[in-house]
Design a protein around this nucleic acid. Structure first.
Lengths: 203, 203
DNA sequence: GTCTATAGCCAGATAGAC
DNA sequence: GTCTATCTGGCTATAGAC
């Protein structure tokens, strides 16, 4: 690793600020309703300057999605070294983390099936590689949790994996938060419970 | 009820064809990516003609959502008269129905939080009334299912209701269908199971 | 690399003839 | 009510000066 010059560090910091703004906006309104003008205004620079950093609106959003996957990967690594926890507890910790991120307004919504963002993501090697790595790690945990009986062995691991991804972007926490009757912690607990135990509960 | 003139019947049929097209497009791409041109092309009439029937793109989508709620209400009425089924079985039947609709590409996706559609829906008396009625009916069943121990009594009914609504628009079935490894019936069974019993299953 | 100003395009909505 | 043709606004993206 070569040290970064001062100029490069400034660039990094600026691009991180840009991606943070993109991330918030993606969580708030989604890709289609997010405008590049808003991103520029949020960061405090001109729109044309944004296009010096990122080639397109799609590239902007894709970079934010990659950053989110990197954070997920870091979270998985962190959970991997826990000696005190079963795989199921690790999985639950990851879902809890995602739900908390979502309630904080920092979890981008899934791109809809026909979005131009989808095409960009499917042609992004960085994104696909990260997604693959993360999915493999989660897949290992899922299979192991099934072997231990904590997750229903009758479910294909694929179904479990997709379900976990979907829960990370579930609209239910936002609905409950908008209702204003419950604390964030309660919401997280309930959604996590319905994810693992279903509506039926433990009974 | 007065009988409808021939002209009025023709109008009804045409508007129903329009709403069917809107429904398909809402399910396929969502409100933001759906264009009025596509709707017109799908129905086979000119765009200007659409605007003789509906005042705006939002009104178009709102009418389709109202129609979907009417269908849900009809489904609830149908389940209400089943003597052979518990409330939990009725709830499951409704979720199953929604999942099958979704796999058939006929379930509109939820409007994102900041969509202009949301404002339209919140100011539509027909929509809000219908939503209230179906929510009350579902709410009764939920409370009863909790009393019978089939649904976790620790969950606020609101949480259960929102979860059911969210599952009806869940992206998981579409993901699994896109994978191409499973039949529609299998997908419905698995998603319904993870909804009621969680990832943990019955064990 | 940052800015202001603008090009180019697309989609929602409308005008006006029939 | 249906059509063709057009207006209008907003958004992505770029030109060109500094």
């Amino acid at each position: 690793m070569s040290r970064l010059s001062f100029r490069e560090q400034v660039l990094r910091v600026r691009e991180d600020a840009i991606l943070s703004a993109v991330n918030r906006l993606l969580a708030d309104k989604g890709f289609d309703l997010m405008t590049v003008d808003e991103v520029a205004a949020d960061v405090g620079i001109a729109k044309a300057s944004l296009y010096k950093h990122f080639a397109s609106k799609e590239a902007l959003a894709a970079a934010a999605m990659v950053r989110m996957l990197q954070r997920l990967q870091a979270m998985l690594d962190q959970q991997s070294v826990r000696a005190d926890a079963s795989v199921t507890e690790r999985l639950k910790a990851v879902v809890r983390w995602a739900l908390e991120l979502q309630l904080a307004g920092e979890m981008p919504t899934l791109p809809s099936q026909n979005s131009s963002l989808r095409a960009e993501l499917l042609s992004s090697k960085a994104y696909l590689n990260l997604l693959l790595q993360v999915s493999e790690k989660l897949g290992e945990w899922i299979v192991q949790a099934q072997a231990e009986g904590d997750i229903d062995p009758a479910l294909p691991p694929e179904v479990v994996l997709y379900t976990l991804y979907a829960r990370a972007c579930d609209p239910v926490p936002a609905f409950l938060k908008a209702g204003g009757n419950f604390s964030d912690a309660q919401i997280v607990d309930w959604v996590l419970s319905t994810c693992m135990n279903g509506l039926r509960g433990r009974g």
